Amino acid sequence: MADDQQLWGYTEVAAHLGISVGAARSRKSRGSLPVPDDDSVPDRPRWKPATFQRWKPVGRGFRSDLHRSSPQENAPSD
């Protein structure tokens, strides 16, 4: 891999995903991140930014607890 190509470590991946570095490491160990583009240094995987632009995280479905009902639905009826 050419040295002039930008590669992301855990810090950049975590910032991109909006999670902590520890969470990024945990996701990697569970196989919930894409395969690293460079794993030549033990315990320091690196990814190309384009890898995350194409990657779609595996979802666990719709979280209804994150969506509130509209105020009209909660208004008392006469």
Rank of each mutant, 00 (worst) to 15 (best):
G18S: 08
R60V: 11
R30H: 03
L7V: 12
H67F: 13
Q72L: 15
E73F: 15
P57H: 09
P49Y: 07
R44S: 12
P71K: 11
D43R: 15
A14K: 05
W47I: 08
D4Y: 11
G31M: 05
H16G: 01
W8K: 05
P57T: 08
Q72K: 14
E12Y: 01
H67N: 09
S32T: 02
H16M: 08
R46N: 01
N74D: 15
F62I: 14
M1S: 04
V35R: 05
L17T: 07
P57G: 09
R68V: 13
Y10G: 00
A75H: 13
E12G: 02
S20G: 10
P49H: 09
S70P: 12
W55Y: 11
A24S: 13
A75M: 13
P76E: 13
G31N: 02
T11E: 12
D3H: 03
S40P: 03
A2L: 12
A14V: 10
P45I: 01
Q6Y: 06
W8Q: 03
S32M: 09
R27K: 15
F62D: 05
D3Y: 02
Q53M: 09
R30D: 02
L33Q: 02
G31L: 03
S69L: 15
A14S: 12
G31V: 03
L7N: 04
I19Y: 05
M1P: 02
P34V: 10
D78F: 08
K56W: 03
S77D: 12
P57V: 07
S26V: 07
L7H: 12
D65K: 07
H67D: 08
